[in-house]
Design a protein around this nucleic acid. Sequence first.
DNA 1: AAAACGGGGCT
DNA 2: AGCCCAGTTTT
Length: 346
Amino acid sequence: MTFSKILTDWYSVNKRQLPWRQTTNPYYIWLSEIILQQTQIKQGLPYYQDFVSVFPTVFDLANANEAEILKLWQGLGYYSRARNLHAAAKYVVEDLNGVFPTNYKDLLKLKGVGDYTASAIASICYNEVSAVVDGNVYRLLSRYFGIYTPINSSKGAKEFKVLAQELIDKKDPATFNQAVMEFGAIQCKPKSPDCTVCPFNSSCYAYGKDVISELPVKIKAAKVSKKYFNFLVFLTPSHTTILEQRQGKGIWQNLYQFPLIESEKALTSKQLQQELEQFELLEGKTFEVSLYNKDEIVHKLSHQHLYTQFWIVEVDANLAGEIPVSEVEDFPVPILIGNFIEDFNF
DNA sequence: AAAACGGGGCT
DNA sequence: AGCCCAGTTTT
């Protein structure tokens, strides 16, 4: 049996029932693929359902406000995906008359659609023979063929793409692509796969040499940095507070947060007090500060750890740009802020 | 080529 | 603590 045949036979028996497997409508496939980038199905599924429900067509998505889309995306992370989703929807509606590109090359022109996603959409929706290479594919192929090229190197990306393109079922690329990913997710798992029941075990390099845990090879990521975040939760007599939109380049772009003071290390009440003396917003006003969380909240991102303190700042007057506390929950915020809002319950 | 970009889950 | 996830974009 061919590699492809073994895989698709396994798939026909073991595949999960998922909503995006009931359609070949490119809007839904695209939506699911963007949501599932660097995201496990369990985490992405409820977001997919929400998006389909709130934005049933690409026109609905294109006509939405970015804040509305970010709010629905809240908690999923990698927020550039949501911003690019909106930009791509507008492009499809305004430049393509609402019709999605129908091939790999043109799909690549959509913001947020790279090699993997273009191949996924092109194969699933249009039966184009374009192999997907995601984390699952890297794992299966590196183990089965014994390939030690780092998967997160440009050499590795090319090598695995070529190999996958050789293996793909030219008659049914859609099924092959979904099968190889499902196989990686369920059978050829990262940790402790049960190779005794694997249909490839008689010819798998890694199983034969007992090097499953060594593959795939990955170049180590740089160490995570530490940052100290002090969020200022203002409260006025008229039950208002301040939220500001994050600008610029870094994390959480275009999301909202309480005014932030970043520091080299954890601030004491006295130090924060001093910082607030120079705060424009508070000029000539009386205020009182208290620390909300005694222990620092450590918010862990893939490349930095945020040591966070929330400071309650009670002010005796109104503030420029204030919003009613009842409206706080309407804004898209990082989950770190969202968890505080839920806990604090204004 | 390397770094940046989230948050959840598992070991 | 370290690794992984239906990756892409920016530097």
